[in-house]
């Protein structure tokens, strides 16, 4: 069947048959394997990228957690330090108070002891003086007696 411009359906169909053969052959032999290789490589890189991103995300989460923990620790340390400082101050006050009390007690005891010692010494001195006076009197008496006997 001949048409203007020498268009021929039989030859058009022959060309289409040729295109069909070419499509099948090139698709199976060239396009598909190359595309599959490219897709596999892209998938591999994507999985590596995803894994890296996941690790990065985990690391960031861990970092955030560590920062939070660090912050909590700092707060706790500050609280503990404040508490310790308050305890220490309270303890120091009580120690000072106790020391003052002890000092007062010791001072009072020392004063008592000194007073007692003073009284004792006065008494002892009185007794000695009395004894000496007695002895002196006895001696005077004895001398007077001797003189009188003479």
């Amino acid at each position: 069947m001949s048409l203007p411009l020498n268009i021929n359906f039989q030859q058009i169909l022959l060309h289409m048959f040729n295109l069909c053969l070419l499509f099948g052959g090139l698709y199976l032999l060239l396009y598909k394997p190359v595309k599959r290789f490219m897709d596999d490589r892209a998938a591999k890189y994507k999985s590596v990228d995803d894994a890296a991103k996941e690790k990065l995300l985990k690391a960031q989460e861990a970092e955030t957690l560590a920062e939070h923990r660090l912050k909590d620790c700092e707060i706790k340390i500050e609280q503990d330090m404040a508490k310790s400082r308050a305890d220490a101050e309270a303890e120091a006050e009580s120690i000072i108070k106790d020391a003052n009390n002890t000092r007062k007690q010791i001072l009072a005891a020392a004063e008592d002891a000194a007073l007692r010692e003073k009284n004792r010494m006065i008494n002892d001195a009185r007794e000695e003086i009395a004894e000496l006076a007695v002895k002196a009197a006895e001696k005077v008496i004895a001398e007077k007696k001797v003189k009188s006997d003479d």
Binding site: N6, N18, L21, L22, G25, L26
Partner: peptide, 18 residues
């Protein structure tokens, strides 16, 4: 037409290359 032969030759070349 000669173009049909050309078309099959091109296909043959491309397929051999592939």
């Amino acid at each position: 037409n000669p173009a049909v032969i050309s078309a099959y030759t091109v296909t043959f070349i491309l397929l051999i290359f592939a």
